[in-house]
Design a protein around this nucleic acid. Structure first.
Lengths: 331, 331
DNA sequence: TTGAAAGCGCTAACAG
DNA sequence: CTGTTAGCGCTTTCAA
């Protein structure tokens, strides 16, 4: 339990003032080389590390960003976080990652923590249960620029960056039509989520606009197991689907398990297409064709938006990152 | 840009002293109910949030733990982190998650950050490239209890908790023998990693002890693609394997891709068994039988070890979490 | 029951 | 080139 070394301690040992030590350590031009060397050497020996709390308190600048997500486990969030991390490092910022676990209460706790820590800014993807975002909207006024990403609140005037749900869905729908699939099983997740609603809506619209309104059926699945079950049901009918669209990785894994179980031939017997951030589709053979929603690109967009806000031109903006098709051999 | 509200501001508005406000806010028994209500009400209206940096500075206790990992993306680390998070919350601690991206330089930067932030303790899983851990060993002396987990340095006197590599490998080997597999393909990862060496060693030893030394072949793969290729090669020979052992998820995904490609029947044609933390094996049908290394359990162990250290009985200890077999239908 | 005062470690304006 | 001083927001002893 050795007490930590401070500027004061160094200044005492060297019989110089605290401020001289402080300056010497940050290579202030005013300091003589002799003094500077002396100080830096001793600091090195003593393993001096500046106290970040004291600095934050004094300068009122923590040089830290917060990232609040429902869960860090998905490939999407992971690539988003890594992307932000890369940029943050370049600018001398650190990252504080907080998980809300799909629980609005914990999410709120996390927001409070960010305020307590006087973070320089927050990136947040809200949980699917989040209803009251008033606390979040206050952040901007309290001098903590906030960028919503991916799961963003609807209709509010705040900074958002998100992936092109509509665009990605249309890419998929378009390919299904081009491939002349006539009996499409379109599987979506929890229909209470706005992301599901947007995708369902986009899918229906596109199909109908292209006179394909009679060639698909929409079903919902809240888990891989349910997705698996849905495919099972569809394959028991005499008129089996010739293609299945999975709106998420969760759905896709369920579907693929049943495909293996029933030994369904892909793509001959059944075409498969998904929307994904791109890790899961590569686990299978043939690899799954999907519309990509890139956490990495979104991270870059979000970060540059953040820096703009910090620079002091905090007008509100919604940015959408367009999606692209990645071809496997599954359709 | 409204300036943040502080105790001083509240005390001015109410014409009472700062210390009274401070006490009132934390329900100090000395304070009269009238004053307390008055203060708490105003603080509520003003959205007062205590400045965590000031508190840390004053109390010399950040109530934060750091977790440093190569990457948060794996299911193992994710479950470890979530497990720690759960406990930390119960004790009023927050978590700072830092990724090193398999880069010792960034890892070192992260350690420095933890020191700067005067964290209350650190959980760290070192990168496979980490060689110089002197900076890490200093942490304990500098009053930052450090728990190494999963990827731990060899031979050093420090607190470690890790999964039972040897135990898990033996469980697998034992089942392979019980199933009377005679032509086992045992696939391991990067042989420079100590985790690989330990597992290979344990596997060989167990097999030889049980007179099964002639019935397996060991190969190495550094990526899913290489694992896939290895299986391909094995299946081109006239004497095909009747079982494959995958020492990690990475290997398993590569193997499974080739299994799908070659339409190999599992388990009739080929038995499959793995060591995994338990997310990937469930993606397939039949589900893969595996020896589980649980991040969740390890997290609990690590946390309780941390609390012991903080309580001030910091003797060094190595804890190993035993593994169990989870049965799918793959062998 | 409340207030005054000191100090955590650091920065920065000002003075020499 | 170096030192003095004030103060960031908070807790906590001591005194009233």
């Amino acid at each position: 339990m050795k007490p930590s070394v401070t500027l004061k301690k160094i200044s005492n040992m060297l019989n110089i003032s605290i401020s001289t030590v402080s300056r010497a350590l940050k290579n202030h031009p005013d300091i003589s080389e002799a003094t500077r060397n002396k100080v830096q050497e001793l600091a090195g020996m003593l393993d001096y590390v500046p106290n970040a709390h004291a600095i934050s308190l004094r300068t009122n600048n923590s040089k830290e960003f917060g990232i609040i997500v429902p869960s860090i486990s998905s490939y999407f969030y992971h690539s988003f976080i890594s992307s932000i991390e890369e940029e943050a490092r370049r600018f001398g910022y650190s990252l504080v990652i907080l998980q809300s676990g799909e629980d609005p209460k914990i999410e709120l706790e996390n927001v409070i923590k960010c305020k307590n820590a006087r973070l320089s800014g927050i990136f947040i993807s809200i949980t699917s249960e989040t209803e009251d975002i008033s606390e979040l909207l206050k952040l901007d006024q309290q001098n903590i620029p906030t960028i919503f990403f991916d799961k963003v609140p609807a209709y509010e005037a705040c900074n958002k960056v998100c992936t092109a749900d509509t665009g990605a869905t249309r890419l998929v729908a378009d390919l299904l039509i081009k491939k002349k699939k006539k009996k499409i099983l379109a599987m979506f997740g929890n229909q209470h989520l706005s992301i599901t609603q947007v995708r369902v809506q986009a899918f229906k619209e596109f199909m109908e606009q292209h006179n394909w309104g009679k060639k698909f059926e929409i079903v919902y699945a809240h888990s891989p197991a349910q997705a698996s079950e849905q495919l099972h049901l569809a394959f028991q009918k005499k008129n089996k689907p010739d293609a299945v669209f999975c709106m998420s990785d969760e759905i896709l894994t369920g579907v693929m398990k049943r495909v293996q179980m029933l030994k369904i031939q892909v793509p001959e017997e059944l075409g498969i297409i998904a929307i994904s951030d791109g890790s899961v589709p590569q686990l299978y053979y043939p690899e799954i064709t999907y519309a990509e929603t890139s956490g990495f690109k979104l991270g870059k967009l979000a970060f540059s938006r953040m820096m703009t806000c910090i620079a002091g031109t905090p007008f509100v903006q919604s940015i959408v990152d367009e999606s692209v098709l990645i071809f496997g051999g599954s359709i």
